[in-house]
């Protein structure tokens, strides 16, 4: 087992991701961030809190989205759906999808499909904490990335949110 990000590194990485979003969008009211259930919402919760801290009183919208019903492996195994909560329109907004680990890209493919049920966004970007390079099965890349790593398919990357660290094993 190897630690990829420890508690301190995780904290500054999340801060950096929040600052990168602000750098890109001077007007946060045109931005909505959407955490992907189940594991992406830990990161999106933290980024949302960070954005509120950096610019108090900003009107950025925050939602959570479940992609279970859009998965392409439904015939292999059923997964339990999680809660979706998007109580605003994403029409003409800049949507930032947030997930913890980008691996095959299939979750993001499903998320892009799921997103269309809520309107037509102006633009969709992807923010991930860990980008596992050279393991993509679809042409999907992150726009904001906490850390890029090289790993074997047999290895697993896990973000331990309770211990606040990212490990490879």
């Amino acid at each position: 087992m190897k630690t990829i990000l420890d508690k301190y590194q995780l904290q500054i990485t999340i801060e950096r991701l929040a600052y990168q979003l602000i750098e890109n969008y001077s007007d946060l009211s045109s931005v909505v961030i959407i955490g992907i259930q189940p594991r992406g919402i830990f990161l999106s919760d933290k980024i949302f809190a960070q954005l509120k801290k950096i610019i108090p009183g900003n009107t950025i919208e925050y939602g959570k989205m479940d992609i279970t019903f859009y998965r392409d492996d439904i015939r292999k195994e059923l997964h339990s759906p999680n809660q979706t909560n998007i109580s605003f329109s994403i029409e003409d907004k800049n949507v930032v999808l947030i997930d913890d680990v980008l691996y095959t890209g299939r979750t993001i493919r499903a998320a892009l499909d799921a997103l269309l049920a809520f309107g037509r966004p102006k633009k969709v970007e992807l923010c991930v904490l860990i980008n596992r390079r050279y393991s993509r099965q679809l042409p999907i890349q992150p726009d904001y990335c906490g850390k890029a790593i090289d790993s074997l398919i047999s290895q697993k990357v896990k973000v331990e949110w309770d211990k606040e660290e990212v490990v490879l094993y």
Binding site: F69, Y70, D113, A114, F118, G119
Partner: peptide
């Protein structure tokens, strides 16, 4: 919740 969305359909 799906039935409350603007597009009330999943694939």
């Amino acid at each position: 919740e799906v039935l409350q969305r603007p597009i009330k359909k999943v694939p």
